[in-house]
Design a protein around this nucleic acid. Structure first.
Lengths: 193, 193
DNA sequence: GCATAACCGGAATACGAGATTCCACTTATG
DNA sequence: CATAAGTGGAATCTCGTATTCCGGTTATGC
């Protein structure tokens, strides 16, 4: 592979990650090409079709995600702060939407990527352990689970076009609100009336 | 207007409300027609174009919404339960998605509907009063406002296709979680670390 | 019962958006 | 410098949906 071609490949995956973060997994090839500063033809020389390109972005990102969770876990005194830190990490600008975008990857795409599915499963399992630990430590409500956390993460870090502008501008604000509602003792006990 | 035509008109608006709730304001005319049990031609005989039909749905729904808020307010001892009850009302099955669908009505549509804009403004104002009252009563955090509540309502009652399935299946669960995070005292005071 | 103005369904048409292909034209590299 | 590798982006193909149109129905007044 020629040196300039390798350079372009890098630019393409990088651009794809950015554009997917902004517009979701349905982002048009042309938008990605423009962002990378290349023609659409170049995208198709490296990837057979858009699914392959999106999958490449996913492969890279899921690892980052798993690493961030591990780092938050290692770097925190207790499980609740680990969760808090990880959620804040996901909400950081430019990263937010990507995680969700990938959450809605079509099944066909995932099926052809055993690696992706495996890493994601490991991540979920790890996340679940942290959540259970937080509950055992008495800092987190017992009537919510890791799936609730994941769904809410997905909801708030959806690509900006599908969210009210203020939410897209600061998903962290709403994610923190959600965490506050998940703290032990925050639960509203009975039906309201 | 012939009797059968009037009957169809009713079926159309009703069907449109259902389909918009399920698929958002972008729902195809054909889906609405099928739901109403009529042909697309019939839709176009009553409404010049899809915007007009969607606007008609909005006109009707915004009134229902405003009334529900007033009812929740009148029927509750304190402002916080009024908010809680109203949020639960919005989250009720079949109603949920409609309110959000309308929140993203294109500006062109709204501009041609002074009535809609007026009722919606009155509703927001009323909602804001209740929120401020709850804060004055000491039951709600002071660092969140009515706009946060509205955004969250919009996010969670989005049409099902844009939400993780479990969230779409029970938006109330997640809205209640958010409300728990908005209660006075729920705020996490400082940065986590 | 009939004439007929209103209605109807839904096939046909018009479009816009975006994926994918193709090829004449560049540019690294041995 | 020869040439294989690489490139941009116009052209093509597909799809999903709005909108139009019209031959066939049906309510209604007489």
């Amino acid at each position: 592979m020629r040196a300039d071609a390798r350079r372009n490949l890098g630019k393409i995956v990088e651009a794809a990650a950015e554009v997917v973060a902004e517009r979701g997994v349905g982002a048009p090839m042309e938008a990605i090409a423009k962002r990378a500063g290349v023609g659409v033809g170049t995208l198709y020389r490296r990837f057979p079709d858009r699914d392959a390109l999106i999958a490449a972005v996913g492969d890279h990102y899921i690892h980052t995600m798993a690493d961030a969770l591990d780092a938050a876990d290692r770097g925190s005194a207790d499980a609740w702060s680990a969760i808090w830190d990880f959620v804040c990490w996901v909400a950081e600008p430019g990263r937010a939407a990507l995680s969700t975008a990938l959450a809605v990857l079509p099944d066909e795409v995932i099926a052809r990527r055993a690696e992706f599915a495996r890493v994601r499963a490991r991540w979920e399992e790890r996340f679940d352990q942290v959540v259970r630990r937080a509950q055992a430590e008495g800092t987190m409500r017992r009537d919510v689970g890791v799936q609730d956390l994941i769904h809410l993460l997905n909801v708030f870090t959806c690509h900006p076009e599908d969210l009210p502008a203020p939410v897209a501008a600061d998903p962290g604000r709403y994610l923190r609100l959600m965490l506050d509602g998940m703290k032990a003792g925050a639960a509203t006990p009975a039906p309201s009336r």
